[in-house]
Design a protein around this nucleic acid. Structure first.
Length: 216
DNA sequence: AATAGCGGCAACCGCATCGAT
DNA sequence: TATCGATGCGGTTGCCGCTAT
């Protein structure tokens, strides 16, 4: 039986106070990131390590770019989501200064709705084919979708079927992504502008591996 | 002015993954 | 090879502020 990550009785929960933020920032400034389990005690925080890590990564990190997403960023998120599904950390890794949480929230609150309004199913990035729903170019029904910002067609290659939902269901996209890594997607049009290509996906995965292996 | 409804965002939770032993 | 602990990730929740009624 695994021990809980922290003694929940002795930890604060909920919103962070300014003092807590300052303690965390000061500690990381001096000692650097890592060792999240021992950090709270060492920093004098009544928080669990996971909470500290999340607060730092999503809010306190100095290199965070806060504020609205640009059109380019939106476009890139949509394209990467079409390729990778709900792998938010991978997507965020291609957006400097953005966090997975931020991208995920933005997707769920803005981009999903935006795609739906455009008649695109956000789960699989294909045109929603409702018989009663008028479609922009019906002759192409289900054949291609237009990326909103760039107006660059994202070919519906039918090889990519992002998941209805993530985690267990990520297998489909994992398959797509791993197929990309194996170069087994013959007819896949990966010219997604903003340099999202098979090699980009390779690089994303590669970066991820490297960051895992590199010491903190 | 009050309040119900809604959307956005920060934070939590549980599971997966990876490295060390 | 199996097990354990630490960390990472994605889904979900809950709070807060804004807007419509």
């Amino acid at each position: 039986m695994r021990k809980p990550c922290c003694d929940k009785q002795d930890t604060n929960k909920g919103a962070w106070s300014k003092q807590e933020d300052e303690k965390l920032i000061n500690y990381i400034r001096i000692h650097g990131e890592g060792c999240w389990r021992t950090l709270p005690q060492a920093a004098g925080l009544l928080r669990c390590g996971k909470s500290c890590r999340l607060r730092w990564i999503n809010y306190l990190r100095p290199d965070l770019k806060r504020g609205n997403f640009t059109e380019d960023e939106e476009d890139l998120i949509i394209k990467l989501h079409a390729l990778l599904g709900n792998r938010w950390s991978l997507i965020a890794g291609r957006l400097p200064g953005r966090t997975d949480n931020e991208v995920k929230n933005y997707w769920n609150s803005h981009l999903r709705r935006k795609l739906i309004n455009m008649g695109i199913d956000p789960n699989n990035h294909r045109l929603i084919t409702h018989n009663h729903l008028p479609r922009p170019h019906d002759s192409n029904s289900g054949a291609s979708i237009i990326s909103p910002a760039s107006k660059v067609p994202v070919t519906d290659n039918t090889n990519i079927h992002p998941p209805e939902k993530s985690r267990g269901d990520n297998d489909q996209v994992s398959d797509a992504a791993s197929s990309l890594e194996d170069h087994k997607l013959p007819d896949l049009n990966l010219d997604l502008t903003i340099s999202v290509s098979a090699s980009t996906v390779d690089k994303v995965e590669d970066d991820r591996r490297k960051s895992r292996n590199s010491p903190k």
